[in-house]
Structure formats: structure tokens, C-alpha cells
Design a protein around this nucleic acid. Structure first.
Lengths: 141, 141
DNA sequence: GTGGATGCAAAGAATTTGCAACCAA
DNA sequence: TTGGTTGCAAATTCTTTGCATCCAC
């Protein structure tokens, strides 16, 4: 588990590796993502940056850039909007998302390897998966 | 494993149980869903009904009704649109979806019970999950 | 200086809502 | 008959695109 500073530097070097530029909006977004305890939507991130600071379009474009640089993961949700979180390559996990308040909480463990193997045996390549659990949290009940 | 006719009758009785009415568009949609070998989008279903037969809005509204009656499952996908499939309570499975042609194929097995238990222990109720695998199929490679 | 990045406006795609006409029970 | 259902139009929500300006390298 690395420090926020290390994560930040690591993300910057990933960007440089793909010859993306280091800009103010990108640095601000990265810091936010690194400090996030749970996955957030483009809109959440935009609000947290301060509505007027950078355009929502810039947030979307950079999240896409980050995804391509392997810095963040995008996960589509039941509600139709996507959430983004830092890609912590070390360990793979999923979330339980509250249907009411939409907060997401990490769940360690992932047992999907068997299914991925099955898919590969069926002839699929570049296999990945999206797994999210939904429920109603104590506070919302 | 029940026959298409049995599935149809079963779906109708589910609708009646919740005092939803049996209408032509609903019957047509149910038949389509029962005959579907893979999950489909609202738009797919609308096209297959014949563009002009029933309104796309009606398809959306009825898919939502079906979901509430427990007749279909809705699954959000990577691309942002949702797919619908008949809810076959007997056995639970997931799909591998091709990133190029978007066809979905069933995968038997599901090992997510452990994660659901974890979520319940964290205080969540009504826990369900969405799991989809993505890859590129042989034909698209 | 030059090509990638940004902001603003506008377009797009999927889905939802309002309301009058309609029809299943 | 009457309240659920439908169709049409329009609104919403999330996300993407076009284009002129700007700035990181």
C-alpha cells in the first residue's frame, strides 16, 4: 500500500508514458481520486472540484484519458451512470452499493477467476468483468 | 426446465398477482423474451416487435413493470445501456459479452454467494448482484 | 511554435414523464 | 364504469462532439 504522494507520482508517470500532458485539471482530478474513499461519478468529482473551476466536459474527457492510461477504472451501475475509482493494481475487489444513498463500500475478495477461465475456454480474449452488489444500508433502512 | 407455454402462463399469473393487466403489448413482449436466447435491449425488443407495432415507450414501461413483477432481470452494461432477460429463478448464471458485436452468452456457475454474505454481515439488506464478463469473441478477432 | 487540452455550446443516446385517448376487468 | 395502459411529444439525464482558443512541452 503506497502513500498518496506515491500514487500521485505514479499516475503522473503513467500519463507521461503515454505522452499525455500534465495539466492543472488533471492534477486536481488525480488528487481527488486518490483521496476518495469510494467510487464517484463524473458529476460528483466536478462538484468537489468546485463547480466553476473546470468544465464538466473536461472531467469526462480526463476520466476517459485516465482510463486509457490505466489510472482509473470505470464501473457502470444499476442507475445507468458510471462511477470511477483509482485502479489499485495490487488487489482486486468489488463494492456493495446502497440503492438509496448510492454510497459504495469496498468488499475484499473476488472469486470470479473461475468464470473468466470459462470464458477464455469459450474462445474469448481480453476478458474482464464487472461485478457490483446492491443492497440497502443500515442508515437507509 | 419448463416449456415456453408454461413460462408464458407463469409470467401472466405473476402479472395478475400484482394486479397488472394483461394487454396485447405485454403478451407480445413476453413471447419475445421467452424466445430470446440472449439478453436484449429495449430497442432490440422494440425492433423485433416490428417498429410500428407498439411504441418504444410502451416497451420501456412494460419492461419496468415486468421487472417489478419479478418476470425479467435488468442488467446495466459497459456501454451504458441495459439488457433484459427472463428471470429463470431455477438457476442463477451470468454472461460473457463480446465488446465488438455485443452478443451475450450464458456462463453457468456463480460463486458470488460469499460476497453477498459479506455484504449482509456489513448490515445491508435486499442484497443482489450484477456480474458480467466482457471479452472479444472468436468471430470478432 | 505546435499539437494536445480546455471551455462553451450544442448534439446524441438512453430513458423517463405528462397528458389525453383508450380498453381490460 | 373506471383506473390502469398506451401513444405521442417533450423533457431529463448522462455523456460525447465540434470548434476556436489556449498552454504544456
Amino acid at each position: 500500500m503506497s502513500s498518496p504522494e506515491a500514487k500521485f507520482d505514479n499516475a503522473l508517470s503513467n500519463l507521461k508514458k503515454e505522452s499525455y500532458r500534465i495539466t492543472e485539471p488533471r492534477k486536481a482530478l488525480l488528487k481527488l481520486l486518490i483521496d476518495s474513499s469510494h467510487p464517484k461519478s463524473a458529476d460528483d468529482l466536478h462538484s468537489e472540484l468546485g463547480e466553476k473551476s473546470y468544465d464538466l466536459v473536461t472531467v469526462y474527457r480526463n476520466l476517459e484519458t485516465f482510463e486509457q492510461a490505466g489510472i482509473v477504472n470505470r464501473m457502470p451501475t444499476e442507475s445507468g451512470k458510471s462511477l470511477y475509482e483509482l485502479n489499485e493494481a495490487q488487489h482486486h475487489y468489488h463494492h456493495i452499493i446502497c440503492r438509496k444513498c448510492h454510497r459504495a463500500e469496498k468488499l475484499d475478495h473476488c472469486e470470479v477467476e473461475k468464470l473468466e477461465l470459462l470464458a477464455k475456454n469459450l474462445g474469448y480474449s481480453e476478458v474482464t468483468h464487472v461485478l457490483e452488489l446492491y443492497g440497502v444500508c443500515e442508515d437507509c433502512r
